[in-house]
Amino acid sequence: HNLTITQGKLFFHYNPKLCLSEIHKMEEVSGTKGRQERNDIALKTNGDQASCENELLKFSYIRTSFDKILLRWEPYWPPDFRDLLGFMLFYKEAPYQNVTEFDGQDACGSNSWTVVDIDPPLRSNDPKSQNHPGWLMRGLKPWTQYAIFVKTLVTFSDERRTYGAKSDIIYVQTDATNPSVPLDPISVSNSSSQIILKWKPPSDPNGNITHYLVFWERQAEDSELFELDYCLKGLKLPSRTWSPPFESEDSQKHNQSEYEDSAGECCSCPKTDSQILKELEESSFRKTFEDYLHNVVFVPRKTSSGTGAEDPRPSRKRRSLGDVGNVTVAVPTVAAFPNTSSTSVPTSPEEHRPFEKVVNKESLVISGLRHFTGYRIELQACNQDTPEERCSVAAYVSARTMPEAKADDIVGPVTHEIFENNVVHLMWQEPKEPNGLIVLYEVSYRRYGDEELHLCVSRKHFALERGCRLRGLSPGNYSVRIRATSLAGNGSWTEPTYFYVTDYLDVPSNIA
């Protein structure tokens, strides 16, 4: 807008934040220059609390790290170098490059900038070799853009010569660093050979998330399962459950009422301010606690030095998902009996873990797994792929695949051998790939016309006998059925096997 004052003059007093240069501009645009008398524009009460600059400061050096910015700028000295009290560095987070010096300023003089007072450097006698002032900004957020400017702080001049310097606002972004852990990993099994893994992005990506790394490792069953005799009275049979499938998407929606109208769909109840505040506090606490764990609990591995020492970490090797089922080394339970199943799973520490690289999504279907087997899954978020990966501390989750139908069934015939004193040795093959492992066998036998009897055969007993022995049988026709019990439950009964026990007292003698 054009402003013209045809008559009258300007009068400025007691404006401590208004620089004289701005008042002189007002004289020019209003056409009143030359009308004012000496005392109409006070030299001592206008701009006496402001830094009124008329020179431009330029930054000469900028260096960044993930949490620091090192700045240096060209030296500046007023005509009387004693008038320079120091520099004021202003900075704040700036997602967009549209910041002005006066953003967030209120009537009390406060604003949204963080201000650092910096002492002037030592003055050199040689004007050509003056030290460049600077400042190291610490405690910054990774991968965050900051708006920065600097200006001088000078003393009051009796001659009211307006001098000083100020830089333009520059924008500097800190470097990326390792992201925080992925949030809320959930693993479920939808079949006997697959596990579905879902997660949420890290709360602090500290860069642009480029991919996720998912490692999985087959877990050995508890050692007590191999040692305890679950045929003993009072000892509860062990059981394991597989990871249940995901709930429906509708039930997972946030901010939804727990109660549904019987007449149909209901609208979600909005969260109160107290609920939102509580969630923010919980989120802040979780982030602080995660940072504490990362800094205190997890110790970084030592990389190899120039002395030739090897990095103890196993090298990563990509495998196809079809090879995942046989990740671990199978060892027989008892070496003397080769027909026992290889369900003991000690994992070799030198073995390469299978892994998958996930790009542009937060889910993965891990296939080719062994049925009813526990897996430990390790999830890392990465925001750099080359020249070397920059990934987060791992988040861990466990899951067990679903049982395989008929995996616990005894394959092959049940054979028998009759000894003296009416002892019958029953023999059968253990299931080759049971659900988890076989903890015991149930032997059901009966003599024709009598009630059915049951015998429990422990895992250890089966390994020693290759089956079991029935003792003290009365003469007669017998039928026997056997079924295995694994961590997933009972298998199917075998087809009945028949044998006849004679009275050993009636056996004919070869003595003449």
Rank of each mutant, 00 (worst) to 15 (best):
I418N: 12
G472F: 10
G476F: 00
S268F: 14
A394N: 15
H254T: 10
V393E: 05
D503Q: 09
C269N: 15
K361V: 05
Y396S: 03
I410N: 06
A330H: 11
K287D: 02
W428L: 01
C382L: 00
S203V: 13
H425I: 11
R483V: 05
T333M: 14
V397A: 14
Y396E: 02
E279H: 03
R483F: 01
L321I: 14
H211W: 14
D385T: 00
E310W: 15
L225R: 11
R218E: 12
V345Y: 09
V214A: 06
L235F: 08
D204V: 04
D506M: 08
G308W: 05
T401I: 14
F372I: 04
N422V: 04
Y500C: 14
V329G: 06
S243C: 10
A405E: 14
E310H: 05
G207P: 01
Y292S: 03
L232Y: 09
S341N: 09
E310P: 08
G264Q: 07
E362Y: 09
I276P: 02
N255L: 04
S398M: 05
R319M: 09
V457Q: 12
G325M: 10
K287P: 03
P245L: 13
Y445I: 02
F215S: 08
A463W: 12
E389P: 09
Y441G: 01
G476K: 00
Q429C: 12
V480H: 00
G322H: 08
D503I: 02
V457Y: 15
H211D: 02
R370Q: 12
S320V: 11
L235C: 10
R240G: 06
P312Y: 11
D229M: 10
T497V: 14
V297T: 02
L453E: 06
S243Q: 07
P238M: 04
Y259P: 10
S257V: 12
P434L: 02
P496G: 14
C382F: 01
S320Q: 10
G325N: 08
I482C: 05
N208S: 09
K278E: 03
H371K: 05
V334K: 12
V443D: 01
E279D: 03
N339T: 12
L277A: 13
K287Y: 02
P434I: 06
P244K: 10
R318F: 15
E260I: 09
V423Y: 14
V214P: 00
L228H: 06
S492P: 11
V414Y: 02
R319A: 11
S251H: 13
A309P: 05
V214S: 05
R318E: 06
Y292R: 02
K460Y: 09
A220V: 11
